[in-house]
Structure formats: C-alpha cells, structure tokens
Computed example of a mutant assay.
Amino acid sequence: MKPPRVRANLPARPKAAWRQALGGQAFREGHGAEWIAAAWLMLKGYQILGFRLRTRGVEIDILARQGKTAVVVEVKHRTTIEAALSALDRIQLQRLRDAGAALLRQRPSLAGLQLRIDIVALAPGRIPRHRRNL
C-alpha cells in the first residue's frame, strides 16, 4: 500500500487569468451597482448608514434608514429587472433578516428601530426598481 501524498508547503494553484479577470469585473460591477442603488435610495429620502457590512457569513449590501425603520437593502444587478428581482431566494432572505436583527442588537445607535428587508433591482438601460418589505 502506498503512503498518502502530502501537499504540505506547496503553493496554492493560481486561478486562471481569465477567471481572475471575470471575478474582478464582477466585483467592480457589483460595487458600481451598490452606488447606483444608494443614490436611488437617497433620492427617495433614505439615509445611507453603511455599505458592505459583514455579519456572521452574510454581507449586507446597504444599510439605510427611513424614519424609525432600519432597512437592509440587497442589491441585485442582472441582465433584466425580472431576473434581478427573482435572484433573492428564501434562504438568502432569511439570512438577511437574521443579519439585520443581529446588527440592530449590536449597535446602540440602531436601538428602537424597526427592521425591514428591501431589494433594489438593476439592469442595463433600465430605471432601478425598489421593492420594499420582502
């Protein structure tokens, strides 16, 4: 019987250059979409409290405030508005609710605010669509 191969001290295999380029492009497009969504929300009277907030494995794209409501906003950018709106599944929605609730408990400045989950859907050449209270 052969001894098991040990890969200790070997460098990690680098990603293919094309894969890195696509990942970087998606990353930049995602950040651009978040800025567009934030501008759209500010035009509607929301106060932006934060971007890309990390909580236990979940990233909140935008945290905003409207009156006495803290709004966790998920930003989806797809080729069509319909695809963007349908890109948020029940599991991700529940994770966003849990992350938002944890954020309200952890930050004294957010104490007493109600929590709401929204989505801003973006598509090239289309006006953003904001769907509230998912």
Rank of each mutant, 00 (worst) to 15 (best):
A111P: 00
A39P: 05
V72H: 04
I119Q: 13
A111Q: 14
A21D: 07
Q66L: 15
L53F: 02
R126A: 15
I91R: 12
L122Q: 04
R107D: 09
G67E: 06
L43Q: 03
K15L: 15
L110Y: 14
A26H: 11
A111K: 13
L10C: 13
I91L: 12
L115K: 09
K2T: 02
R19M: 04
R132T: 10
D89F: 05
W35C: 04
A99D: 07
D118P: 11
P4L: 15
A101G: 11
Q114T: 13
L134Q: 12
I48A: 04
G24C: 06
H130Q: 10
R129E: 14
D98V: 09
N133W: 06
A26E: 13
I81R: 03
Q92T: 02
D98M: 00
G45Y: 00
L88F: 09
I119E: 06
P14W: 04
H77E: 06
S109K: 14
L53D: 01
Q94A: 15
G23M: 13
S86N: 07
M1I: 12
R5H: 11
A111M: 08
L115Q: 11
K15C: 14
H77R: 15
L85P: 02
A12W: 05
K68T: 13
L63S: 09
I127P: 07
R54S: 11
L41Q: 01
P3L: 14
L85D: 04
R116G: 04
L122W: 03
G100K: 04
R78T: 00
I81Q: 07
L122C: 06
R107H: 08
R129C: 08
G67L: 06
E29Y: 04
Q92S: 09
L104T: 03
V120N: 05
R52Y: 03
M42E: 15
A16P: 08
G67R: 10
R97W: 12
R28V: 10
R19H: 06
P124L: 04
L22I: 05
L93S: 12
G125H: 10
N133Y: 08
R97V: 08
Y46F: 10
A101W: 10
L49P: 03
A99L: 00
T69I: 14
Q106D: 14
